[in-house]
Design a protein around this nucleic acid. Structure first.
Lengths: 405, 405
DNA sequence: GTTAGTTAGTAAAGATTACTAACCAACCTC
DNA sequence: GAGGTTGGTTAGTAATCTTTACTAACTAAC
């Protein structure tokens, strides 16, 4: 190891020690507010190469069984260049040849290619559940190969980090193919460096989780907010469009926004935090945050379940669910209108959300926003179920390491 | 002229004729909804060069009086490459040498460079005003060199297009430096090709304004929604941050959103259309759109002025303004929260907006959204006054033609 | 005045990347 | 089997940025 390596080790040591001792780590000096947009970086030949390489992978990811000639047409590069790129990818085992195209047509038969989907693994973690950290090991398709859980009820601080380590240890030990990276969806505010600025439930403040994990396992690591991960998961695996909002309802209410195909971070990395926005102008229940009528007071699952329990008959339960849905619609109206969203997706307890609540939200949204100006709005439940966050985490690894999105 | 050129001319003819005859033009067949994100294009050497060239221009734009060596440090390319790029730019007269750096320090004195800010002109048009189309001619700094207006009260359809032509004729005739492009802020829905999908006030449906203007004047032309133009103007000339919402209040209420430095278009090019979002849960005045309690019923300047006229004393007028401000705050709350906006900017009649209304909006926003999660929100009037749209249009030309944003 | 050190800018050669042109291979149709 | 079509490779070229090495022009210190 060079001096540089040793120094990096030392930095990690310091960070871990500081977290364990409850001291702020170096990164806490960084302001929460995003830095003013630095100019886009210069473009060198190798950057162009990486970009084109990612285009090839993306094309292969979406449609397996393309030939080099197909790729040339799809991506817009020449067959020569594609062959060159593909040769690199095959040398790295990221792409494999499937053999000749079976169908019969004029000309030399094509050699079909595909991503080596089974040849690599990705680890995805979901730290947003209060009772257990959940994790999966998938192939490049996002197909779950194994699962693991670690109970964390009441666990905070460095203990919680250790719990994540145990989960990762278990998943990595079971990997049968090389792991290309680790994705972690964490609750709370996460900055662009993968530092958890704050996550009250886990007692984390300025925990440089990405740095800790990537150095401990020597693997590329992506850390982001759980709802943002969920939004990216839905975009890649759930077929969500380029302008989508994903609402996550659980103990709290959060959301992830994809606008023009890009994840929205917000000026303080707090984009999507809509749980404590006040809804409507007719009061509402008191909220833990000190305000009254926050979205969470209607929609967070503990509150919703309590309200349901109070209802005596089906009609009462329907009314509770419809009111919650209406409140969500009222809150989302301005967002849907301002962003001209084409799609809103709900993730959370299916039995609570999928029926009357969803319907009431859709009706409210349409009646409060849709004019002749706006097109259709699609409101639906996630297609990914409970795995939405872990799969989103897998997507960030696919994107970060292979350029696939 | 080649066959290709003739063909282009023919297409224009058809479009103009169709518009004049009130028939739909070819482009109307295009769906309003944005196409599914086509994969990012391949990157060839010349694209990289263009990108790096834009970086150089952008650095010079922000800070005049940089040397080649300064640029190399700033942009991250080598001095050699910068010299090469600068030589190109000087050959095109886009960059000029200012002479030697005056201060005294070791080493060879630097030759200072600057954009040739006075050497080129840009035309910006604002078609959003009901009584007159307004236009300006500026230098590359956005400094207004001349102004012009054409009355258009009640003018619609191809007559309105002709009015824009007259305005352009006048401005272009007065240009003393070569014009690098034309920017036009239009009311209504404008797609990415610069076709005005619909602008009821002007009686426009699928008017390919960008195509018409660029072919008539043989100049690069940018057409976009007026509020979007305003947002871009405020971002470049008004110092707005990378996450900003600009609210435009006039005959109606619209907005332009910049998220992560990028303009938001929305799935149907209707992003920012918040005028007909219902505000609050306690009713409101009937709106022309058929709903009740739309944002416009409180904020559109005709309504606001009518309400003010009804008030008998200062207290009453303050109450009217505060209520309008509160309604705006209520509508913006979910948007500010979901996007974690750091900045909201108001543009419109200064006497109506700048006092009680603005204050009430700020208070409402803070009380309904701000938690420990969110940073400070800055709410202010535009710094650009009535020129905000034309200057925004100028910015789009700077961005589109020179890569400056 | 002389020497050393620093900074700006340029020149030449090398590496990367993608392109064009030309080719062979392997299939189809006739 | 001839001719046409499609897939993929080889060889050479153009564009771009880098590295290395140079000259020019200045300050600082003796």
């Amino acid at each position: 190891m060079t001096t540089k390596g040793a120094q990096r080790g030392a930095v990690t040591e310091g960070a871990e020690k500081a977290v364990r001792a409850g001291r702020p780590v170096a990164s806490s000096a960084r302001p929460v507010r995003a830095a003013t947009a630095r100019p886009t970086s210069r473009l060198r030949p190798e950057h162009a190469r990486r970009h084109n390489r990612a285009l090839v992978m993306q094309a292969l990811y979406r449609a397996e069984g393309l030939s080099r000639a197909d790729l040339a047409r799809e991506v817009g590069l020449t067959r020569v260049t594609i062959s060159d790129l593909v040769a690199d990818l095959i040398a790295e085992d990221l792409v494999i040849e499937l053999g000749l195209r079976p169908d019969s047509r004029p000309g030399k038969p094509a050699t079909l290619l595909d991503l080596n989907r089974q040849g690599f693994s990705i680890v995805g973690l979901d730290l947003s559940n209060n009772s257990a950290f959940r994790g999966v090991l998938t192939d490049l398709d996002g197909t779950v190969k194994s699962r693991a859980e670690v109970p964390v009820r009441g666990v905070t601080g460095m203990e919680a980090v250790d719990a994540a380590y145990r989960l990762l240890d278990e998943l990595l030990a079971g990997a049968e193919a090389p792991v290309i990276g680790i994705g972690i969806g964490s609750p709370g505010l996460v900055d662009l460096d993968g530092t958890v600025v704050q996550a009250p439930n886990l007692g984390w403040h300025d925990v440089p989780l990405q740095q800790l994990v990537s150095e401990r396992y020597d693997l590329p690591t992506q850390v982001a907010n759980d709802a943002n991960m969920a939004a990216q998961g839905e975009r890649t695996f759930g077929g969500a469009s380029a302008d989508t909002m994903l609402i996550r309802i659980g103990r709290g209410v959060g959301s992830g926004l994809v606008i023009g195909g890009h994840l929205v971070h917000g000026s303080g990395f707090a984009a999507g935090e809509i749980g404590h926005v006040v809804v409507g102008t007719d009061g509402g229940a008191d909220c833990a945050c000190g305000k009254a009528g926050c979205l969470e007071t209607w929609l967070a699952s503990p509150r919703l379940e309590a309200n349901l329990a109070e209802a005596t008959d089906d009609a009462g339960r329907t009314a509770v669910l419809r009111e919650a849905g209406e409140r969500l619609g009222i809150a989302l109206g301005p967002v849907v209108g301002a962003l001209n969203l084409g799609e809103v997706i709900l993730a959370g307890p299916h039995d609570l959300l999928a029926g009357d609540l969803l319907e009431a939200t859709a009706e409210t949204l349409r009646s409060r926003t849709m004019g002749e100006l706006h097109g259709d709005l699609s409101l639906r439940m996630t297609a990914l179920g409970r795995d939405i966050v872990v799969l989103g985490a897998v997507v960030t690894v696919l994107t970060g390491q292979l350029g696939i999105s």
